[in-house]
Structures are given as structure tokens and as C-alpha cells.
């Protein structure tokens, strides 16, 4: 019997995973990450970044060239069968059978999981109810909408009560309403105690769902942290404003004194840009200083970096030759 994982141990722990397809496509180029149970961890990256490859390794579908991976206290490379009793996987495409009913699909997975016929039936009914598909459970899946298929696929991945759930781009190709429903469902799973590792190309999704985000590109984690931490790496908010040309010189000095940073005049937009270390407070301080000098600023904006900015900046500075595929 293996020892149960120590409560403080990370539930997923990956060290220096490398995987190469063919000669020189390094899909994973030394990925390391670790996170604790009970959260959503989002892998954020563009197409071909290595997200799916990493999920496939953790879900025991792919053996990497080197490195190690532990999931729920099990070494997935040494004991894949054991690892499979602790994980659930919903891949990029809903892997459900069109000609079976929703209930039959989930029951089949239960039977394959090793449940008896009666247990599989009970479990399928419970999950379908929890996931809001009871009414459609007796219909063939070919009559389902795209969002329903995704939910059914998620249901199938929950049959074994996984400790860790892997979701590969769970909402790609789903309309906004269904996406919001799936987000609610995923949060619900986490509240029930499941840990979720999901991949996404959508910054909003990572921002909304995940406690921690790993930005992945060219097979490497290039940045990691909470959504706020990632935004902070860009240096916080910026204040942008314009003043009448005759007040520019005075305004520049006032802003420098008020905020402690040299304002930069963008020659094209003719607007000042200056860091606002305290966000809205800095904005107020700057406006008061200008107002006291009788300068009325125009078109004032406080710009907070979005995850998009983080993402674009991170993936931009990571100059690497495009890998031929």
C-alpha cells in the first residue's frame, strides 16, 4: 500500500519534463510546476505552446522523454494504472458517443471504471443530476447542443470521483452563455474538493477561474503566479492625460513631484504617460496638483494592465525561432 499523500504536499508536482516529437520539436522543454489541492490551476498559452502535451503526460496518455510527475501522491510514470484511479480527463473534443444516450455514455465509463452495473447506474444518475442533464439523459447525444456535449463529457470524467481533474480547453468553441455555465460548474467541483488543472487560450477564463496561472510558451513555463501577481509584473497602473500645449512644461514638473516618476510625452498622441504606483490614489493626487496650479487636464485615463498585456509582453519578449512543424 502506498502511503497517502501528506496533506501539505502539492497535489500535482512536475519536475523538468521534456518531450520531443520527431527530431526537433520540443513540445515540453523542461516544464516544472507544483500546486496544492483544492484550487484551479490554469495553464495559459497560445496554440502549440505545449499545454495539451503536458496534460497528456499527467493523464498517463504520453510518456515524456525525461522528467518526473506526481499526481495525488502517485508517480504517474511509474504507476500509471494507479494514477488513473485518481484522475479524470476531459479532452479538447467531447469524447462522447453520439448514438448512445447521455446516461448510457456515463454508465459505460462507470462500468469501465470497475463499478458494478447497479453502482454505475446510480453514479451516472447522480452526476447527470448534478450537472443539469437529467432531462436530457435519455436522449441520444446526437440531439445535444455543443454546450451539452461538453457538460456530458465533463460528467464522464467525474465518474471515478477524481482527486485531480484535467480539462483541456474546456470551453473552446462554446458560446458565452454555455461558457459561463461551465465556469460555474467547474467552481462547484472545486468547492466540493476536486483540484482542477485546465488549459486555456482565454485570458478571461484564467482570470475568472484560476487561483494560480502558469503562462506557457514554447514548452516552458515563462511566468507563474496569481492573476494579480502576473499583472504586477508589468509594474502596476499607468496614468494617461493630456493638457493644453502651453501648460505642458508646468504639468510635467507637477506630475513628477506628485508621483515621483518622470512623465513621458507621447509625440503622436500628445499625451503624458506616467506610472501611478497607488492606482486611483495616484490619480487623485495628480489631478489635485494640476488643479491647484489652475491646469485642467483633459481625457484622463487610469490604465491597469490586463492579463492580455501580461501575456503579450511575456510571449513577445520570449524571442525564439518559430518551430517548424
Amino acid at each position: 500500500m502506498p502511503t497517502p499523500p501528506h496533506p501539505q504536499d502539492p497535489i500535482v508536482e512536475v519536475h523538468d519534463l521534456v518531450h520531443t516529437f520527431g527530431r526537433d520539436i520540443r513540445a515540453l522543454d523542461g516544464v516544472s510546476l507544483a500546486f496544492d489541492a483544492g484550487m484551479v490551476y490554469a495553464l495559459l498559452g497560445p496554440n502549440g505552446a505545449g499545454k495539451t502535451t503536458l496534460i497528456r503526460v499527467l493523464a498517463t496518455l504520453l510518456r515524456p522523454d525525461s522528467g518526473s510527475a506526481q499526481v495525488a501522491g502517485v508517480d504517474v510514470l511509474a504507476h500509471p494504472t494507479r494514477a488513473r484511479t485518481r484522475i479524470g480527463l476531459a479532452g479538447q473534443f467531447a469524447a462522447v458517443d453520439d448514438y448512445l444516450t447521455g446516461r448510457e455514455n456515463v454508465r459505460m465509463i462507470g462500468r469501465l471504471y470497475g463499478l458494478s452495473g447497479a453502482e454505475a447506474k446510480r453514479r451516472a444518475d447522480d452526476i447527470l443530476e448534478g450537472i443539469g442533464l437529467t432531462d436530457a439523459a435519455s436522449r441520444a447525444v446526437k440531439t445535444y447542443s455543443g454546450g451539452m456535449r461538453r457538460r456530458l463529457d465533463l460528467a464522464a470524467s467525474l465518474v471515478g470521483r477524481p482527486q485531480v481533474l484535467f480539462l483541456d480547453e474546456p470551453t473552446t468553441g462554446i458560446d458565452p452563455r454555455n461558457r459561463a455555465d461551465l465556469w460555474t460548474l467547474i467552481r462547484q467541483l472545486v468547492d466540493d474538493g476536486t483540484t482542477v488543472l485546465l488549459t486555456t487560450q482565454y485570458l478571461e477564463e484564467a482570470d475568472r477561474l484560476a487561483e494560480r496561472i502558469g503562462v506557457i510558451d514554447h514548452g516552458r513555463i515563462i511566468s507563474e503566479g496569481t492573476s494579480d501577481e502576473l499583472k504586477d509584473t508589468l509594474g502596476g497602473a499607468m496614468l494617461e492625460l493630456s493638457v493644453e500645449p502651453e501648460h505642458r512644461e508646468a504639468a510635467q514638473g507637477l506630475l513628477r513631484d506628485a508621483l515621483g516618476d518622470e512623465p513621458v510625452l507621447d509625440p503622436e498622441t500628445e499625451r503624458f504617460r506616467v506610472t501611478a504606483p497607488d492606482g486611483t490614489r495616484s490619480l487623485l493626487v495628480a489631478i489635485r496638483a494640476l488643479d491647484a496650479a489652475g491646469i485642467e487636464p483633459d481625457d484622463v485615463r487610469l490604465i491597469k494592465p490586463t492579463l492580455d498585456d501580461v501575456f503579450l509582453q511575456l510571449t513577445d519578449t520570449d524571442v525564439q525561432p518559430e518551430v517548424a512543424s
Partner: peptide
Amino acid sequence: MTALTPTPPPPTASQDLDRVP
């Protein structure tokens, strides 16, 4: 809404085999 993933029972011996019986 019922709990979808209630705490799993501790792994049984058959779950922890490296081969499926």
C-alpha cells in the same frame, strides 16, 4: 445541486494494483 465529487473513499487494494485484474 448534489455534490458531484464527494470525497472519494480511501483507495482499496484493488485500486492500487499496477495491473488490472
